[in-house]
Design a protein around this nucleic acid. Structure first.
Lengths: 95, 95
DNA sequence: CAGGATCCCGCGGGATACTG
DNA sequence: CAGTATCCCGCGGGATCCTG
């Protein structure tokens, strides 16, 4: 395999976007309020500079996040992830 | 870091459970109907035997999936993931 | 503060072959 | 069919140091 093709399934695309340890947690943090790099670093205990940099870059590419004057915030697309996040939290709480 | 501790945040736990390429897609497939190993293999184009085996084991451990007579199906806990899945699909479709 | 550059390890995961 | 066993590669991601 390894085509990363016209993923017929929209779920597969989203899964690919979100399938890592940090992405959803970054979005979670940004959902509360825009944050600077070092603030994110402090909120996300355990994340490395490198990883945070990489994830933010990817999220910017995907237009989920924008950066203005060293401040990161969710785009309107990014805010739509709130539904996913709430669902995950709800599951996490109930299970 | 690397404690995998009393993750205070329920989101972090869920993120950890779901953060990989295949898990959500397996659940997606099982949500439609219970399936046998080879059926899952066929549905999940590109997955390797090994990976499918490993993911199913993990999901069984987490009590998201049960296995009866070589047939895999979601537990009631697993079915609760439908909310997460719908949210992801909705996002994927809108974005 | 905001990252980029390096180094490096371990895990995710594919390919293939084999067994009950 | 339903997996298990091996082999192996690449990426995720931590640690550390460096710069504007």
């Amino acid at each position: 395999m390894n085509e990363k093709p016209h993923l017929s399934c929209p779920l597969a695309k989203v899964a690919l976007l979100l399938s890592d340890t940090w992405t959803m947690r970054i979005i979670h943090t940004l959902l509360h309020e825009s944050q600077r790099f070092c603030e994110l670093e402090r909120s996300l205990v355990g994340i490395s500079t490198r990883t945070l940099t990489l994830k933010l870059q990817k999220l910017i590419e995907e237009e989920v996040v924008v950066k203005n004057d060293s401040v990161y915030e969710l785009t309107s697309k990014g805010k739509k992830l709130k539904g996913v996040l709430s669902a995950m939290e709800k599951f996490g709480a109930s299970a």
